[in-house]
Design a protein around this nucleic acid. Structure first.
Lengths: 136, 136
DNA sequence: ATTGACCTTAAAGTTAACTTTAAGCTTATA
DNA sequence: TATAAGCTTAAAGTTAACTTTAAGGTCAAT
């Protein structure tokens, strides 16, 4: 399988596959006598694992830790993988909390603006200032 | 007020204030005969508005649109501001949905792993692959 | 034979919001 | 007086995950 075929099969652009190789995420594969990379089914699976990890929000750096050495004879490191999943879960929840807070602030602020304006007070440039809601 | 004083008063580092100026977010202020920037209360308020917009998740680019021309004689453009708030609200909610989806996938995937392993099936490198959950 | 699609590499560009560095004044302090 | 803190500028560095470019070799089809 040439890189273009792997690209089509996986949905990952050829240059991205080369990029993954340069980062150590994809193994360096053998070359044909023309110098072209030669891939196989295993390559496709590995790329699938990268795509999956990406969807879960892992960084390429993260993937190096747990995914990089998933050689066929050893399999994945179960404990490390679960640990990474939990860590990622925490990250996701922290981000969600941040967004909820932000949403709340925006809603409050918008309401404040509407209230202020409906009272006919045109407060000029000072509406958007330090503390839109009662937070922090 | 010198830049260092404004920095202390606002909590925004001096070099960041210069950076904001370079981006057109902070106005170019007058200089003392030593070449130092001279700030006043208005500068502090403007910086406060930037800080606030940042907390709401606006990009500096966003701020240029609505915040940049909030000159004292005109005040903020109310309609535009409300519109930006609504747009940002949409963004926040989209991101939250993405994160919720991601959280769900991680949880499902983790459960799948635990189930698989508890059954004594050591599936080697294939656990993390294309479709961890039934999504997409 | 030549056009076009596909492969190769290395290096630079992209985006955001800064931060860091370098090189050199000015001002305040001991 | 010397030294440290603070100000100036312009330019380069940071991070992530690619994308784009440049310059060139290979392969399939007409």
């Amino acid at each position: 399988m040439k890189i273009g075929e792997l690209a089509k099969a996986s949905g990952v652009p050829a240059h991205t596959i080369r990029f993954y190789e340069s980062k150590g995420l994809m193994p360096k594969v053998t070359r044909g006598m023309n110098g072209y990379r030669v891939y196989n089914e295993e390559s496709l699976e590995r790329l699938g694992r990268i795509t999956c990890a990406k969807r879960l929000g892992f960084t390429l750096e993260d993937m190096l830790t747990v995914l990089a050495e998933s050689n066929p004879s050893e399999g994945l490191d179960h404990d490390k993988l679960i640990q990474q999943l939990d860590t990622r879960l925490d990250e996701v929840e922290t981000m969600m909390k941040g967004l909820m807070q932000q949403r709340e602030e925006i809603v409050q602020f918008k309401q404040h603006l509407l209230d202020t304006w409906s009272e006919g007070k045109c407060v000029r440039t000072n509406e958007m200032n330090q503390t839109p809601t009662s937070s922090s």
